[in-house]
Simulated scan of single mutants.
Amino acid sequence: MGDLGDLTWQRIVGAAAVMVAAIAIAVVLRLLTGRLFLRAGDTRWAWDDLGARLIRDLAMPLAVLLGLWSAVKVLHPPNGTLDVAAKVLTALTILVISLALARLIAASVSSIALARQGVAANVTIFANITRVVVLGVGILVMLQSVGVSITPLLGALGVGGLAVALALQDTLANLFAGVHVLASKTIEPGDYIKLSSGQEGYVVDINWRNTSIRTLSDNIEVIPNQRFSDTILTNYHRPAQDMSLLIQASVAYESDLEQVESMVIEVGQDVMNEVEGGVKDAEILVRFHTFAESGINFTVILRTGEFGDQFRIKHEFVKRLHRRFQKEGIGIPYPRRQIILPEGSTLSG
């Protein structure tokens, strides 16, 4: 066979055979790790899923990189070329491991946040910050491995970071506000909140810049995180999700208030026990409070499982109470006024 400098056809064919074998091994590992990942997904434990994903992410690229290094060794290039190949393959290996670790650690952070904040959580801010930090460290290590001094780079990043911080004050304010909101547990995904500016809905996600809430009309409103630090916020899921529901009603002056109170409590108990969203065995309170122009006003206090249940509870209670009042002959007063005229006066048509 012909000779290509220090390279012979035998070495080239041997290197090609090594690469083919490495690719075949990589494909087999991909299939095996894919099955392992599916098997781990059948269990309830989340950490085996993360471990299986890490193995799947690393197996194929590391097999290919190991094949490349073996092929280079088979070719036996000059020392200078070998050193360059070693640095490039080392850098690629560090990059692959950094990407896999970033994905693993970000998924771990998300899993921990999910466990702490409930099944409705969909928090991305911690996962994104973790991913950026791990990738940044990996890139610095990769640059160091190829002979690039990172000390001047770190100095330049410090000066550039100051300039970026001044230029992105609002963005950074939203970032730190989002971290503070999550750390202080002021709000969490799944909570129903209302701002003094009027926005209200269920918290869907808190990311590095804004918070998304889903309104009762199924629209998404996006609110900058910084808004939460300078506004009055009502969280209807704190300190607990169940809450009192106040319903206003009125009866005629001729009504027996003891009978009215007894009927209202009975209807309220039925609603609490039979309607979805009611708090079973909750104490139903009736408070008469006003001698109004047309009747006596009172407030009924019920309990609902969470904010969104109040509409169903109120709907059923009003229907049932109206039906019960009609059945028992309890009058619900209409607005009326009594006009007293001097003697001899008449109303002109």
Results as ranks from 00 to 15, higher is better:
245 L>K: 05
116 R>P: 03
102 A>I: 08
133 V>C: 11
275 V>Q: 04
85 A>P: 03
50 L>R: 13
269 Q>F: 01
181 V>K: 03
261 E>I: 14
90 T>C: 02
237 H>M: 10
318 V>L: 10
255 S>M: 06
32 L>A: 14
20 V>L: 13
58 L>P: 01
79 N>C: 06
204 V>A: 11
213 I>W: 12
309 D>E: 10
267 V>A: 07
289 H>W: 05
20 V>I: 15
157 L>I: 13
130 T>I: 09
28 V>T: 10
272 M>R: 08
17 A>N: 04
170 D>H: 09
7 L>H: 08
342 P>L: 14
320 R>T: 12
340 I>C: 06
295 G>F: 02
187 I>Y: 00
289 H>S: 06
29 L>M: 15
31 L>M: 14
132 V>S: 01
305 G>K: 09
347 L>C: 11
273 N>V: 07
278 G>H: 00
144 Q>H: 10
216 L>T: 10
91 A>Y: 06
60 M>E: 13
102 A>C: 02
237 H>W: 06
114 L>N: 10
150 I>N: 05
241 Q>A: 15
187 I>L: 13
226 Q>F: 03
35 R>H: 09
321 L>M: 14
268 G>L: 05
312 R>K: 14
260 V>Y: 00
29 L>R: 09
200 E>K: 12
241 Q>R: 15
201 G>F: 08
233 L>I: 15
286 V>D: 01
314 K>R: 15
16 A>F: 07
9 W>Y: 05
204 V>Q: 05
188 E>W: 03
336 R>P: 02
318 V>R: 08
36 L>M: 15
323 R>F: 00
168 L>W: 05
300 V>S: 00
236 Y>Q: 07
46 A>G: 09
165 A>W: 07
69 W>R: 15
240 A>I: 15
243 M>L: 10
267 V>H: 02
281 D>L: 02
16 A>H: 04
111 S>G: 06
17 A>M: 11
215 T>E: 06
66 L>N: 09
45 W>R: 14
318 V>M: 04
284 I>E: 01
214 R>V: 13
26 A>D: 03
98 S>L: 07
82 L>F: 10
200 E>V: 10
138 G>R: 12
190 G>R: 06
292 A>Q: 09
305 G>P: 07
121 A>I: 08
34 G>L: 08
235 N>P: 01
190 G>K: 09
216 L>P: 04
325 F>H: 02
99 L>M: 13
224 P>S: 03
272 M>V: 12
297 N>F: 00
186 T>E: 09
153 L>V: 15
67 G>K: 10
323 R>C: 01
2 G>I: 15
233 L>M: 13
154 L>S: 07
32 L>G: 02
80 G>S: 12
224 P>Y: 04
122 N>T: 11
23 I>S: 04
92 L>K: 04
295 G>T: 09
189 P>G: 03
202 Y>I: 15
83 D>V: 14
107 A>M: 14
38 L>K: 14
224 P>G: 07
346 T>Y: 00
28 V>D: 00
312 R>C: 03
305 G>Y: 00
17 A>T: 12
296 I>W: 00
181 V>C: 00
144 Q>D: 12
214 R>H: 06
307 F>C: 03
310 Q>D: 04
349 G>R: 14
